[in-house]
């Protein structure tokens, strides 16, 4: 046996070992999940807020972008449940593409405007709408910027320069442990994720979890150094919005995130405190490439569920619907 084939044999052996381990780990975590669930069902460790007489986990509102947004948040107790007077709020919509709302690549400006209005009503001292776009900044934020102008000129910003970021460690991350996050986000009291619902050719969908990549500076490292889906979950162990509002008024169901793809008009807003649940609900509610998909079929969502970031078993959660 020459040294090369020896190496290959060794690699194979190591590979098998690693796969075995992964599988074992997987089973363990599944078991843990099941145990937790059983415990939850028996009322042993169930979080108190769920017990509080049918508090809504997921709110689904149908209607025009603005009213549906307000109604969905209303089902969760209104913006006042999240934003206390004087607090600083960051809203993270999708503003990554220089295209109009009809392409469903960006969050509808009206959804963002309604959220800003609700934050102001709740007494927020400072509201910022932030993203780190892919295309030249001004072109990307134009729509949202225009819609939010009534609240001030410097509300909506696309931040690129390193001076706007601060390096932090992600204490609960498994592998992707260090990154630079927008200072505004680090200094905020409340983070609201406001993604548009769209397909994503490498991560299946791009919703609230995936959207957090728009708050950090160096995203490419998540692609080449780490497994992208795990890195997204690592990032979301730190960037955990208190409120998720998914814009499903139009859904880019194919060829995301940039399109052009098949856009369905769904007139739906999904809101939740739980990123994973909100994303899972969006996956179940809309069609993707003309068919129904399961939340577990999206790798970063099932990892997030396993690691306890939230729950993708939405059928066990309390969902409220409203038509406006």
């Amino acid at each position: 046996m020459d040294s090369r084939s020896l190496f290959q044999a060794l690699f194979r052996a190591e590979d098998t070992f690693r796969k075995g381990l992964t599988r074992r780990e997987f089973i363990t975590s599944q078991a843990r999940g099941a145990l937790l669930f059983a415990a939850g069902a028996s009322g042993l460790v169930i979080p108190s807020r769920v017990l509080a007489a049918g508090e809504t986990d997921i709110a689904i509102a149908r209607g025009g972008p603005g009213p549906a947004t307000r109604a969905a948040v209303g089902l969760l107790g209104g913006m006042g449940a999240f934003v206390k007077p004087g607090s600083k709020v960051v809203i993270k919509p999708n503003m990554s593409f220089a295209r109009g709302p009809e392409s469903a690549t960006n969050t509808d400006p009206e959804v963002v405007r309604e959220l800003v209005a609700m934050c102001r009503e709740a007494g927020a001292s400072r509201v910022r709408v932030l993203d780190h776009p892919l295309r030249p900044n001004e072109q990307c934020i134009e729509g949202v910027s225009e819609a939010c102008r009534v609240f001030g000129d410097d509300l909506v910003q696309a931040l690129e320069d390193e001076d706007f970021y601060r390096e932090i460690t992600l204490p609960q991350a498994e592998k992707f442990r260090k990154t630079e996050v927008m200072k505004e986000v680090l200094d905020a009291d409340v983070l609201i994720a406001a993604p548009v619902a769209k397909a994503h050719s490498s991560t299946g969908v791009s919703l609230s979890l995936k959207g957090m990549m728009g708050l950090i500076r160096n995203r490419t490292i998540m692609h080449w150094r780490y497994d992208l889906s795990s890195a997204i979950v690592d990032l979301c162990t730190f960037l955990r919005p208190q409120l998720v509002v998914i814009d499903g008024t139009r859904v880019l169901t194919t060829n995301g995130p940039g399109g052009p793809g098949k856009v369905l008009k769904m007139d739906t807003i999904i809101a939740s405190r739980d990123m994973v649940a909100a994303d899972a609900q969006a996956i179940e509610l809309f069609e993707w490439y003309g068919r129904k998909m399961q939340p577990r079929q999206v790798k970063h969502i099932s990892i997030a569920h396993e690691r306890g970031l939230g729950r993708m078993d939405i059928h066990n959660l309390i969902t409220r619907k409203v038509q406006v």
Binding site: F97, A98, R99, G100, E102, S103, A104, A199, H200, S201, S202, T203, G204, V205, T253, T254, N255, G258, G259, P260, G261, K262, V263, W288, Y289, G290, R291, M293, Q297, V298
Partner: peptide, 22 residues
């Protein structure tokens, strides 16, 4: 890619018989 200039079969082509991308 300015508008929603989607034509059927453009962005979703090739995934009819396989799992959608991602």
């Amino acid at each position: 890619k300015q508008k929603a200039d989607f034509e059927p079969g453009q962005g979703d082509a090739g995934f009819e018989d396989t799992l959608p991308p991602g």
